[in-house]
């Protein structure tokens, strides 16, 4: 397996691989996003207790579940780059940070909009809301650190350390916030537990989660390619690509 993987440690090969994968991810995610949105908005049945505004679930839940996964993926990439000194993993981690930040922001904003009619308030200091707010801050810190250094490789190492520190802190933050919140109990969300959901609602939700995951994949590939280009600007193959664009 290592023999097979080895060529992809080279920047050019992974750039090409990303280029071939990118259209597949992009097309399938767009198709599924459209299907999921139409299914969720127009065809899924009404919820028993909530009115039509429950349809926000079809974007809120995918964004919320995947924003945490993106952080873990980012941390894994950092770990790979630290353990095996693989520069490309740094590029992947740098590519993922803004995507994760956007997803977390979407989860928070759609949650606030959903909360307005269902809880009667856009924001409560609920455990889950608060920990997602802190997750946004963690993402913003990582992005800020990426931008603070001129040298991309250096920036990645600094941001990588912060990412790993954040991984240690995510469970601590989660439990601290949960515990803090139980002192003054407010609205809790448990309407998402699978058994309480009919399959007619579950399927469009799963479609949307898959669509979001594919979209994250496509965006990661696009951004990963950019990072690879920026980090290999001196290489002849990048120069060739650049020359083609410059001629136009």
């Amino acid at each position: 397996m290592w023999k097979w993987l080895h060529p992809y440690a080279k920047a050019e090969r992974s750039y090409q691989l990303a280029s071939t994968l990118q259209p597949w991810f992009a097309i399938s995610s767009i198709v599924l996003l459209v299907v999921g949105a139409v299914w969720g908005l127009a065809f899924a049945p009404a919820e028993l207790y909530q009115k039509e505004y429950y349809r926000i679930i079809y974007i809120h839940v995918p964004a919320a579940t995947l924003s945490m996964s993106v952080y873990m993926a980012m941390a894994t990439a950092v770990l790979i780059s630290m353990v095996w000194q693989l520069k490309l993993a740094d590029a992947a981690a740098a590519a993922m940070a803004p995507i994760g930040a956007t997803l977390t922001a979407i989860a928070l904003i759609t949650g606030a909009i959903w909360g307005a009619p269902s809880w009667g308030t856009s924001w409560v200091w609920d455990a889950r809301l608060t920990s997602y707010l802190i997750l946004v801050f963690l993402y913003l810190g990582v992005i800020a650190l990426h931008n603070a250094f001129e040298d991309k490789a250096l920036a990645s190492r600094a941001a990588g350390i912060l990412t790993l520190v954040g991984v240690v802190n995510i469970p601590i933050i989660k439990y601290s916030v949960e515990w803090w919140n139980t002192l003054h109990q407010t609205a809790t969300i448990s309407k998402l537990s699978a058994p309480s959901m009919s399959s007619e609602m579950l399927w469009p939700l799963l479609t949307n989660i898959l669509a979001f995951a594919l979209m994250i994949g496509a965006l990661t590939l696009v951004r990963f390619k950019n990072e690879v280009l920026a980090r290999n600007a001196m290489r002849p193959w990048v120069r060739e690509l650049a020359a083609k664009v410059g001629d136009k």
Partner: peptide, 22 residues
């Protein structure tokens, strides 16, 4: 993390205040 940077001050608060919450 920020000691080598010229404008580390504001960045520093962004990096560590979330970690202070627990």
């Amino acid at each position: 993390l920020t000691v080598g940077l010229k404008k580390g001050g504001v960045l520093l608060s962004l990096l560590i205040l979330p970690l202070y919450i627990p």
